[in-house]
Write a protein that binds this DNA or RNA. Structure first.
Ligand SMILES: [Zn+2]
Ligand SMILES: [Zn+2]
Ligand SMILES: [Zn+2]
Ligand SMILES: [Zn+2]
Lengths: 131, 131
DNA sequence: TTACAAAGTGTTATATTATAACAATTTAAC
DNA sequence: GTTAAATTGTTATAATATAACACTTTGTAA
């Protein structure tokens, strides 16, 4: 794996140190002091980082999170849990799940080379708040 | 299940007869002759239709498809296959898969009440075109 | 080491997707 | 019938994402 370019590194560092998924324009706002001024600069870096698997897009939230799991091969098999109350997002690393889904074959015979799974629920903190 | 309102019915009919997922502004364009003039009218109907499980949102495509599967309980457990070449989308109805995912428990102990899964690959037609 | 291609950058403009706010109307329940 | 809930209509605006073009840097190989 080659090194990241300047913009890619700046944006990856920001996402990687964030405890929560970041949205593109929030990233833009946060890197303007580093000279990244336009949305396109952000989106290009995001596209590349997603492509090489350093970050993932949480599709239901239009937000980006650093990969927690070097073994999800280049973003081909991703799963997340999302708390619908506090919006905490965690990447799921479960070999049973990934084996099951990677080898899943639909009855139509189509073979998949990629998947993205998002689970929704309440995290432990939010469940205990409710009681 | 109660009846749909006027706008909801118009928009559902359009989505239901479409062979492919429809995007909100394409829906808007197609229902303007029926008196629906503003994006909000479309989005409100879409929100409601998703909520009651008559349609699903394909998150990776920002597009909407009619439910093919009355048994996916009110949009709580959805799975789709998406052809990355022709963009054909099919709702997967596989009880093994839904059982596996509905009962899936992460090691963090979080229990999920909802999931959405999108598989990506090439459909049969697109595979044969390539050869 | 020079040429060439590929990848990355900077910039302006614009396209696409989605919601806020407010008033009016229709529908469903009591 | 009265009230509450859901739906509609409308204008404006917010949020997300890409097009097009010129230029620069980086990697590769003759
Ligand atoms: Zn990952
Ligand atoms: Zn939570
Ligand atoms: Zn369905
Ligand atoms: Zn196809």
């Amino acid at each position: 794996m080659q090194n990241l370019s300047k913009n890619q590194q700046i944006i990856f560092d920001l996402i990687d140190k964030s405890p929560e998924p970041l949205k593109a324009y929030s990233i833009l706002f946060n890197v303007q002091k580093k000279g990244i001024k336009a949305p396109l600069q952000v989106y290009r870096a995001l596209d590349k980082l997603v492509e090489i698997g350093k970050i993932h897009k949480i599709e239901s939230r239009n937000a980006f999170i650093a990969c927690q799991n070097s073994s999800c091969q280049i973003s081909k098999a991703t799963a997340f849990s999302i708390c619908e109350s506090c919006e905490k997002v965690t990447e799921i690393n479960n070999s049973n799940l990934s084996k099951y889904l990677t080898s899943f074959k639909d009855k139509n015979g189509m073979k998949y080379n990629k998947y993205n799974l998002e689970f929704f629920g309440l995290c432990k903190k939010c469940i205990s708040k409710k009681s």
